[in-house]
Amino acid sequence: MNYTLHQLQVFLKITQTKSITKAAEELHLTQPAVSIQLKNLQDQFEIPLTEVIGRQLYVTEFGKEIALAAENIINEVYNINYKTFAFKGVLSGKLKISVVSTGKYVLPYFLSDFMNKNTGIELEMDVTNKLKVVNSLKNNEVDFALVSTVPSGVEVESEVLLTNKLFLVANKNSAFPDVKKTDQFLSNTPLIYREEGSATRIAMEQYLSQQGIEAKMKLQLTSNEAVKQAVIAGLGVSIMPLIGLKNELEHGTIKIISSKKLPIVTNWTLIWLKSKKMSPAATAYLAFIRQEKDRITSEHFSWIDSY
């Protein structure tokens, strides 16, 4: 047997994602590179690790056993690295955080100083939709999650990082209605939504429902960036988090439309399971957040207060 650690890492990711394409994306590799690593590993076994039926990839029972062994091997390698750092008196370990997609504008600023100071810690940050974030937290797959609304049905503890404001926005050429006529304007203007399950989508739908507004035309896009570009292009208007609009507002490519009962105000909140037994890395990060969050907010997000 001449399989490599890299082959095992690639195969484990394939079994987790059930897809060559998704595995390649998460590993930041090309699809052919992932396929080659899978083939090289498979060539060392007489029993199939995977099979493709139609266009769907399935992991065989034997493949699942190899994946479990691969995960144990990889974890032991990580442990060797962590023990090396610990022996040298350096804080080490893996810090796992799941972040709702718009949170990518927030959390890096609350991580950079900590990671630069603690070079022995390995960061694993998954940026995805709210449903997957909550599921990863429920399944105890991560240390922390960053959300704009704290989920119900899960016992969590929390630390508020930053105010989150959502405004009605349009492109620079839109004719802005009088505040009193905003409801009529929204009823006759294409509205751009995030995907189902998004906290932004939920907030937007709740606002429209409370105002008795029924959209005649809807566009649904799967990321904050896609919605932003659609608004800039004039495809419609949307209710969006301010945090991702700083550059566009400064350059005038997007404008805020004044509307009654807006902005919607929530909080960017770091949450973790109430019963979570934290690793040394997670414990250190939480202590860092509690001590430094006000400074970080003042240095990087004071502009929010002007809106």
Rank of each mutant, 00 (worst) to 15 (best):
N40H: 15
R201L: 07
A67G: 07
E141H: 13
T50V: 14
T128E: 12
A23N: 03
A170E: 02
D178M: 08
E141A: 13
K218I: 03
N118D: 09
K274S: 13
S279T: 09
P241V: 09
S158Q: 11
L111Y: 02
D183H: 04
K277Q: 12
T4W: 05
V142M: 00
S158Y: 02
K22A: 08
E155D: 15
T222N: 14
G236Y: 09
V59D: 00
L186F: 01
G63T: 03
T4A: 04
V59Q: 01
E25P: 11
K246P: 04
P241E: 08
D178N: 13
K276W: 09
D43G: 11
S238F: 06
I304Y: 09
S92F: 00
L111Q: 06
S174E: 13
T84R: 00
I256D: 00
S158C: 05
L131K: 07
V154W: 09
V150Q: 09
V179E: 15
D126V: 13
N140P: 11
P108G: 12
T4D: 01
T128D: 08
Q211T: 02
V134P: 01
P263M: 11
N79P: 06
I271T: 03
K274Y: 05
T4Y: 01
L146S: 08
L146R: 01
Q210A: 15
D294R: 09
Q44C: 05
K88M: 11
Y58I: 15
E71K: 12
P190S: 14
I256F: 03
I36W: 11
K172W: 10
W303K: 01
D143M: 06
R295Q: 12
K216Y: 13
L219C: 04
L137G: 06
V147R: 06
K39C: 07
L137T: 07
A70V: 08
P108M: 10
A230W: 06
L8P: 09
E25K: 12
E250R: 15
